[in-house]
């Protein structure tokens, strides 16, 4: 155990366990909990993306009222790979809005003969070359999924909406958060005492294996040992130790704990940004924040 502030943990290591289209799972080793948490917080709240922020409703005869529709539009994830090329709306020097800080979209649909589903497919950019566009999800089989449904129009109902997409962060509104969730887990650590092999009979071993709801353990039939199969699945429910306690065995047979400085991260992207980019951006932002902080402290030191 390092000391309270994580001194001595100067070189965290990242070990990527899995990268998917929308998720990334990695192990952050030799890192203090404060840094790990900072990373989590930044990924949720500080990594910028693009989302609809301003809606002009010219016509809306759908069943959903204007505010309702605007709110739904706002929550649509937009592909934000080019987010860095845009300015934050408030930091932009332009007056109402300009191409540097905002992208314009429109949604003009009328149901002519039957009920019509208005989806993200109907949101068109005013500039067709625009790279920012509503996310199209691709499922595990590589097929495109159905677009997100915004509203259903009955016959003769009409929507005519102009949307302005802006850059923002999850701190301001959840719609700008690039992640659905960031899972941070301290690396579980299970110490199985060697004497367990002898102290428990086969039935009790099977009982131990079955006691775990996350099926972390596996019985090695040959050696009659209890092995750890998937340590990462352990979520500290302590069912195994409770089981052993109930058997009235010595209580040091099994120790379930957590590795203080190892973290398993699972980042689930909304599709606005690729997961690995969210992580790397989060690191950049973290470093920026750090340097800003150190700059500030230096300045204040200088003043003294």
């Amino acid at each position: 155990m390092t000391d309270q502030y994580g001194r001595g943990l100067r070189a965290p290591v990242i070990e990527i366990l899995d990268i998917g289209r929308y998720t990334i799972k990695f192990l952050l080793k030799e890192c203090h909990i404060s840094i790990a948490n900072a990373l989590r917080r930044i990924m949720i709240a500080d990594v910028p993306t693009m989302a609809i922020d301003l809606v002009y409703i010219n016509d809306n005869s759908s069943v959903l009222h204007d505010e309702f529709l605007s709110h739904r539009l706002g929550l649509i994830p937009f592909k934000s790979d080019t987010v860095d090329s845009y300015e934050f709306f408030r930091e932009c020097s332009c007056k109402p809005s300009c191409h540097k800080c905002s992208v314009e979209f429109n949604l003009r649909e009328t149901a002519l003969d039957d009920v019509k589903d208005i989806t993200t497919d109907h949101i068109n950019a005013n500039n067709p070359d625009c790279l920012v566009k509503p996310v199209k999800y691709i499922n595990a089989d590589g097929n495109e999924e159905d677009p997100i449904l915004i509203v259903k129009l009955a016959k003769n109902q009409k929507v005519d909406i102009q949307c302005i997409v802006r850059k923002g962060t999850g701190k301001e509104h959840a719609k700008w958060s690039p992640v659905a969730t960031v899972q941070v887990q301290q690396m579980p650590q299970i110490d199985i005492s060697p004497s367990l092999e002898e102290d428990l009979d086969t039935e009790e071993k099977i009982g131990l294996v079955n006691s775990c709801p996350a099926s972390v353990y596996k019985l090695n039939a040959e050696k009659q040992t209890v092995d750890i199969e998937t340590i990462t699945d352990c979520h500290q429910c302590q069912e195994c130790t409770i089981y052993l306690e109930n058997l009235n065995k010595k209580n040091d047979l099994l120790k379930v704990g957590q590795h203080e400085d190892h973290f398993i991260f699972t980042v689930e992207s909304t599709g606005a940004l690729p997961p690995e980019e969210i992580v790397s951006k989060a690191f950049t932002i973290l470093i920026d924040k750090m340097s800003e902080l150190s700059q500030c402290t230096e300045e204040s030191d200088a003043k003294d």
């Binding site: 790990a36 917080r41 979520h235």
Partner: peptide
Amino acid sequence: ELLKNGYNYYGNEVMYSGIYGTP
């Protein structure tokens, strides 16, 4: 039922402070 789904029997879970990140 909760146990079957890989959760604690009573519905308890370890939670981390969002501010400090500590359990």
